[in-house]
Design a protein around this nucleic acid. Structure first.
Length: 842
RNA sequence: GCGAGAGUGGCGAAAUGGCAGACGCACCAGACUUAGGAUCUGGCGGGGUAACCCGUGGGGGUUCAAGUCCCCCCUCUCGCACCA
């Protein structure tokens, strides 16, 4: 590496020092000013920033800076999603306390972000692992508990015996524990859940109001929530003298109550909570148990393949609610326990899965629906899933489709045998984690009082610092006697503190409210409501698509809950969403294992932050994947270097450039200078439109490069221009260029701005194109024959058809193209195109 | 299987139905240089001496005019995946 093209390192350090000294990007609410809340997803402090962060924050910063120059009061905060498992792993592997590891990562990453020159209001910085943040997680949890939105229930979890810990699905590899390699089993445990399904309907319906969100993300969320309308139907359990069960019927969920008379069996999920007691006295108990065990073991394998449908007869019989027919209950591996009721009615004639199952186990098939234009056609060779007219369905025969579904459901409801029901693919949100580095769940288990919430005044429940990591797994907090053992707030007896901590998705479900609401440093509330109602909603949210479902759904849910609690001024937190593409290298995602990571620090020291930012914005539209190309970065670097050297030589030629006035309109300019002025104003228009429409920064930057090329060329030519006009056009051109560049390469723009007489460019006004400059005297007209280009000729933009036709017919190429042709008609688009439609004459 | 998105030079990409390939990378030539992996200037889809012809995954269609709109097909990426 030889001489840098321009002294970026000194420039960037000087400019950053000045921003810091001025606290340049600090904001407070100002009701008289329009606000703009620009937010990028805050990072997990893993240790170092990566190119994905650089891209995310470069996009966000360009938007924030642009809006600031447009006159908005811009809130642009940054913080740390600081709880999570990696900190605990570091503690185990390297013996560093999670808190120390996290703090040191934060401090290093903050340095890195500051080196990029991002215009954050650092006064609002939050870290979710600090008690003054996570205490509000606990406070919200108590509110949710109070509202019945937090509850406890048994859930099936992946459990590793040897680590004595719960594993997330992605930590189970091929049925084995990712850490120790032993077999993972499914185990039921009491877990805390949040009732997100109470909001499912609203979360799904409101998606269509989110016009500023990518269609893709809305579809993903809709598919994830997936409302489904149907009915619950009860089937009585047949008894033969054995002891009473907890319940005397099993309930199924179906979207097709119209097929009720086609039921020939029922199927239950192997992990259904009632199954064990159901088969207790079954003659088939041992084969049933063997099947259940085998299936549950297979469940932990995260195989992508859909396993073959298998099942076994449970030995139990049920009664059809309307016909009283005796129906066998089968256990099936294809039944999803957590959806609907975990029991489905088997209608082989009208459901493909049931059909395959019935074929395999020779269960009867009974057709009860005849689609329009068809005859009953037993035996079937596949299920008939379309709607049709009911047959063999008692008094409902003859009804069709939707009519039958409503009538049968109503009939069942009247008889107390069923009811309409809407279910969702979305499940309630399990938030318990058997981990240390998270928010303690603020409840106490008391042997006499049950579950007792920690009184609000006792918050926060602090994470104890003196924690012992065995590396064996299990919740470290459960091994901490002083934390665990606590008097019951209600009876004073000995209680056991909840030792599970919260899912870290809770932390990120409301941080955007905290950033805004931290403004008046509220002590007894999570945020200042005045500040919230000024700043919310987030106007522009930017982050990776990988958060399209979970984070964004949880944040929408949480915001609704807080709205209902009177704490949030909005129900929807994010007005517009930009999901940026991945940063790829050599065709695949950057990762340590592939050895294709690009280190932002290295790039910054080699080219400077401005180049790194500019290239990431220039090389692809923000929402598409970006292929990193070490060579192509040089293009961005050369562009900035050229701006620097051009402006320096301009100052050499005109030492008074900084004091030159360029705002007044000039009538007297050479045609050449006029054209350049037009180009300047066209560039303003182009960059502004590109930023307003979908943040198309790649094309905005391309047009800045065009402007530089134009100015450069003019500057390099010894023109006949008089010196005063020459200075005027060049200075106004470069000033505009710097203003337009400043969201993308803020350091260089600030530095060169000063050289040309503009102080604090980040706070100057965004330029507005002058209509007078956009008027052109001549524009190229495309002359076509039968739609094929034959010439381009210059005319005034408002030239009438006759003039253009006349001019065209004089053109040598047109004369050739039209000879021997009869003109049928001409198509004329003013200012643009003339097309002769011709046919050979005779 | 279902849903969404995308296929354009050697590469990243650009084009309100109106000149396909702006801008950048790579490459080629020239200038300046003791030197060039620096910088500057110019060229750069394919074919053809040229006039011209061909060209946006493939095939049809609408139109004076299609990368863009409509129909069918192929390929790739992403999301969901036995959801009753």
């Amino acid at each position: 590496m030889g001489e840098p093209l321009y002294p970026f390192s000194e420039i960037e350090q000087t400019v950053q020092k000045r921003w810091k000294a001025e606290n340049a990007f600090h904001v407070t609410r100002a009701p008289e000013l329009p606000k703009y809340y620009c937010l990028e997803m805050f990072p997990y402090p893993s240790g170092r920033i990566h190119m994905g962060h650089v891209r995310n924050y470069s996009i966000g910063d360009a938007i924030a800076r642009y809006k600031r120059m447009c006159g908005f009061n811009v809130l642009h905060p940054m913080g740390w999603d600081a709880f999570g498992l990696p900190a605990e792993n570091a503690a185990i592997v390297r013996g560093i306390h999670p808190a120390d590891w996290t703090e040191s990562n934060i401090s290093h990453m903050k340095d890195q972000l500051q080196k990029l020159g991002l215009s954050y209001d650092w006064d609002r910085e939050v870290a979710t692992c600090h008690p003054d943040y996570y205490r509000w997680n606990q406070w919200f949890f108590l509110k949710l508990l109070d509202k019945g939105l937090a509850y406890r229930k048994e859930a099936l979890l992946n459990w590793c015996e040897s680590c004595a810990t719960v594993l997330a699905n992605e930590q189970v590899e091929d049925g084995l524990c990712w850490r120790c390699g032993s077999v993972v089993i499914l185990r039921t445990m009491d877990q805390w859940f949040l009732r997100i399904t109470d909001y499912a309907e609203d979360l799904a319906n409101s998606l269509e109001t989110l016009e500023g969100w990518p269609e893709r993300v809305r579809t993903m969320q809709a598919n994830w929530i997936a409302p489904s309308k149907g009915a619950l139907i009860d089937f009585k359990i047949e008894r033969s003298g054995e002891p009473a069960l907890q319940t005397d019927s099993l309930t199924v969920f179906t979207t097709r109550p119209d097929t009720l008379f086609g039921v020939t069996f029922l199927t239950i999920a192997p992990e259904h909570p009632l199954l064990e007691s159901l088969i207790e006295h079954s003659p088939e108990k041992s084969s049933a148990q063997a099947f259940i065990e085998k299936t549950l073991r297979a469940r932990t394998h995260q195989s992508r393949e859909e396993p073959e449908k298998e099942g076994v007869f449970s030995g139990v019989f049920l009664r059809h609610p309307l016909t009283e027919e005796r129906l066998p209950l089968w256990i099936g591996n294809f039944v999803v326990a957590s959806y609907g009721t975990g029991v489905v009615m088997g209608v082989p004639a009208h459901d493909q899965r049931d059909f395959e199952f019935a074929q395999k186990y020779r269960l009867p098939v009974r057709q009860v629906i005849v689609p329009p234009g068809q005859d009953p056609t037993p035996p079937l060779d596949s299920a008939i899933t379309e709607d049709g007219v009911l047959i063999n369905s008692g008094l409902f025969s003859g009804l069709s489709g939707e009519e039958a579904r409503l009538t049968i459901t109503a009939h069942l409801e009247k008889a107390g045998l069923g009811r309409p029901k809407k279910t969702y693919r979305l499940r309630d949100w399990g938030i318990s984690r058997q981990r240390y580095w998270g928010t303690p769940i603020p409840v106490i288990h008391c042997p006499s009082c049950g579950i007792v919430p920690v009184p609000e005044g006792d918050l926060p429940v602090l994470l104890p610092r003196d924690i012992h990591f065995t590396g064996k797994g299990g919740s470290p907090l459960a091994d901490h006697p002083a934390f665990r053992s606590v008097p019951c707030p209600s009876c004073g007896g000995t209680g056991r503190r909840e030792t599970d901590t919260m899912d870290t998705f809770i932390d990120s479900s409301w941080y955007f409210l905290r950033f805004a609401g931290i403004e008046d440093s509220p002590r007894d509330r999570p945020f200042s409501s005045e500040a919230l109602s000024y700043w919310l909603p987030v106007d522009q949210y930017i982050g990776g698509v990988e958060h399209a479902i979970l984070h964004l759904l949880y944040a929408r849910f949480f915001t609704r809950v807080l709205f209902d609690l009177g704490l949030s001024p909005v129900r929807e937190p994010f007005r517009t969403l930009l999901t940026q593409g991945m940063v790829l290298k050599d065709g695949s995602k950057m990762s340590k294992s592939k050895g294709n990571v690009v280190d932002p620090d290295l790039l910054i020291s080699e080219y400077g932050a401005d180049t790194v930012r500019l290239f990431t914005l220039f090389s692809a539209p923000p929402d598409k994947d970006l292929s990193w190309d070490d060579k192509a970065v040089e293009g961005a670097y050369r562009f900035l270097g050229r701006i620097h050297s051009r402006i320096e030589s301009l100052i050499e030629e005109f030492p008074d450039a900084a004091r030159a006035g360029t705002n007044a309109w000039r009538e007297t300019l050479s045609p050449e200078a006029r054209e350049i002025r037009t180009k300047i104003h066209e560039t303003i228009l182009k960059v502004t439109n590109d930023l307003e429409n979908n943040a198309q920064m790649n094309t905005a930057i391309a047009s800045l490069m065009e402007l530089l090329n134009t100015l450069s060329q003019f500057q390099g030519n010894a023109t006949r221009e008089d010196s005063d006009s020459r200075q005027w056009i060049l200075v106004s051109g470069y000033r505009t260029l710097l203003l337009l560049l400043s969201p993308f390469a803020p350091h260089l723009a600030d530095h060169l701005g000063r050289r040309l007489g503009m102080e604090r460019i980040a706070h100057l006004s965004w330029p507005v194109p002058d209509e007078r400059a956009l008027v052109k005297t001549l524009v190229p007209f495309v002359i076509q024959v039968n739609g094929k280009l034959r010439a381009t000729l210059s005319f005034p933009p408002d030239a009438p058809e006759a003039v253009v036709v006349l001019g065209a017919r004089e053109d040598e190429r047109l004369v050739r193209a039209l000879s021997g042709q009869t003109i049928l008609k001409t198509i004329f688009v003013p200012g643009k195109i003339l097309n002769f439609v011709v046919r050979p004459s005779q």
